[in-house]
Design a protein around this nucleic acid. Structure first.
Lengths: 144, 144
DNA sequence: TTTATATCGGACAAATTTATCCGAAATAAA
DNA sequence: TTTATTTCGGATAAATTTGTCCGATATAAA
């Protein structure tokens, strides 16, 4: 469904959000440990997230990653997914046709569009905040 | 969503179903041309489909691929998908956790499970026959 | 000012997926 | 029986994704 990079990206962003809610900045090593991901690869993904203004990065000692508190309930999962995986998952044809729409649909078009649109709405309707709170109270988990 | 192999597999199977409804057996070259796929790679996928008894193969001149007419409305898309991509798409965690269930869910578990289950039901509820008929009357397309 | 620590960014490597090639095996038809 | 045609199956190659390494840059603190 999502690429590995995107999975790491979502998990990393959620952990950063969780820590930012408690005014804590977190560094690469701690993020990778928390989400059980390869450190160097995670660094690349965090760079992408920073470039896309999804997270803020600070260099130097005591540096790391954070998200402005005010923005945590504004940022949607969809932003992370399109920053890393692009929007093929929202717009693309289930059978990979370049051109596939109501006018010239693939055999799966109608049935697939429903699922795809539900996924899109789910991602667009889900904020970092609501997912981070589940982590905060120990109801949900980022590894295992 | 699906791998390229799976996309080709679905399209190839639908074309074979369409031709089988008209008592026509089709060969690799014609399939690849019809679904606009690389010939040799398509051959590999057809082998997999044959091994999984989704399509029948016949060697030699006049040989090719076909599906028993009676089975065309029995075979579901889900069979093709799990034969080629496995069942990660039905069972897997959206964030890639090894263990993710109601007991120990990832932050996305509840919302993701809905989408995933809808996809599963869609694929399990869709037969080759209903998709092939759309192709037959020129309502849907396998390329472009 | 120096040092230590953190991200940034580019080159490189490994693994996986996608794709090709070709001889072997089967088989229909000449 | 021979020939031509088709799928089968294994080896190989190309492309993409995943993952590593390391010097450059920024910066907090001694």
């Amino acid at each position: 469904m999502f690429s590995k990079a995107c999975e790491y990206g979502i998990k990393a962003t959620l952990f950063i959000a969780l820590q930012s809610l408690q005014d804590q900045r977190v560094n690469l090593k701690d993020i990778a440990k928390e989400i059980n991901s390869p450190v160097a690869f995670t660094a690349k993904i965090l760079q992408q997230l920073a470039k896309n203004n999804i997270v803020d990065s600070v260099k130097g000692p005591t540096g790391g990653f954070q998200i402005e508190k005010k923005r945590i309930d504004k940022i949607r999962l969809s932003e992370i997914v399109s920053a890393i995986d692009g929007d093929a998952i929202y717009k693309g044809c289930g059978l990979g046709l370049k051109e596939c729409n109501a006018n010239k649909p693939c055999p799966l078009h109608n049935k697939f569009a429903i699922i795809r649109d539900d996924l899109k709405e789910m991602l667009e309707g889900t904020s970092l905040y609501e997912l981070a709170t589940g982590l905060e109270v120990g109801l949900t988990f980022l590894k295992r």
